[in-house]
Nucleic acid binder design. Structure first.
Ligand code: MN
Ligand code: MN
Ligand code: ZN
Ligand code: ZN
Lengths: 143, 143
DNA sequence: CTCACAGTTTAGAATGGTTCTAATTCGTTG
DNA sequence: CAACGAATTAGAACCATTCTAAACTGTGAG
């Protein structure tokens, strides 16, 4: 029965360590949000989905704080923003090199490992501009 | 001096033809918008930029009509929507296969010809999903 | 341990792009 | 030229996101 249960202390401890490393005060809200975001594998959330999810754990976090925290985490390099939909912003716990399938109707993002995909033939950008990153979005739909 | 001047009649005639082909009534507003959009080469506009531009020609078109028209043109295949910015929607008169550089700070889109760019290694989408299109956005910034 | 203070959270208002409503105007067809 | 359905429009509504300014809290100096 050792590993079967949740280990809230450990999750909190990890979250707190992560926040300290990022130079962010480990407040109750940030610890909770970090816990939800980072304790399972890679995740894609919107402010609203994260707000709803954290509400279900019983901890009250305002929507303003969810937005603040998502932006702070992004600035700290713990998250990255994914722009695929004109209507909502997604945030991704996978900050490594990778791309996405996007199922528009469901608002669902699915990772494509960075190693598996290659973009060739990108011309040099016009003078005075340099490449920041290359995003690939494979838009898919239900058959 | 034959080709140096604008040819408004011809532009209108072309716009009207284009609208009729698309099954859209050639109203004063749609003809004007089509003129602005399609008389020069490939263009990327937002509702607001198009609204401002058409205002400068002296023709009054409401913002609601600009939005209506952009969507109707998109549905008719005369335009395509480009999603690169969480804050604004762009519409592209180039409906062929191509990709984009995007200068976020300036809201500037630059075409990359479809032939020059190749995306390899896109995995098969998860069961039940099929690929609709593959979008590549090369995010660039001023040096 | 306590206190003070900067940092954080929050409710609610504000913002801004986009969409909707319902009344007016227009294009087309007979 | 009607007459009718389609299109336009002003302004309201919408909705994700951001802002404001007041209350709260983490922290570290004493
Ligand atoms: Mn919610
Ligand atoms: Mn304007
Ligand atoms: Zn991802
Ligand atoms: Zn383009």
């Amino acid at each position: 029965m050792a590993k079967a249960l949740r280990e809230p202390k450990d999750t909190s401890a990890q979250a707190i360590a992560r926040l300290r490393e990022a130079g962010l005060r480990p407040t109750r809200q940030r610890v909770e949000l970090a816990g939800v975001l980072f304790q399972s594998g890679d995740r894609h959330v919107t402010a609203e989905s994260l707000h709803d999810e954290v509400a279900q754990t019983g901890v009250k976090v305002s929507l303003a704080t969810v937005y603040n925290t998502l932006h702070q985490f992004t600035e700290a390099g713990l998250l990255r923003q994914v722009i695929v939909d004109a209507a909502r912003s997604y945030f991704d716990t996978n900050t490594g090199d990778h791309q996405h399938f996007f199922v528009e109707k469901e608002g669902l993002l699915i990772d494509i490992p960075g190693e598996s995909i290659a973009v060739a033939g990108v011309p040099a950008p016009p003078a005075g501009l340099s490449v920041d990153r290359v995003d690939v979005v494979v838009r898919v739909r239900r058959n």
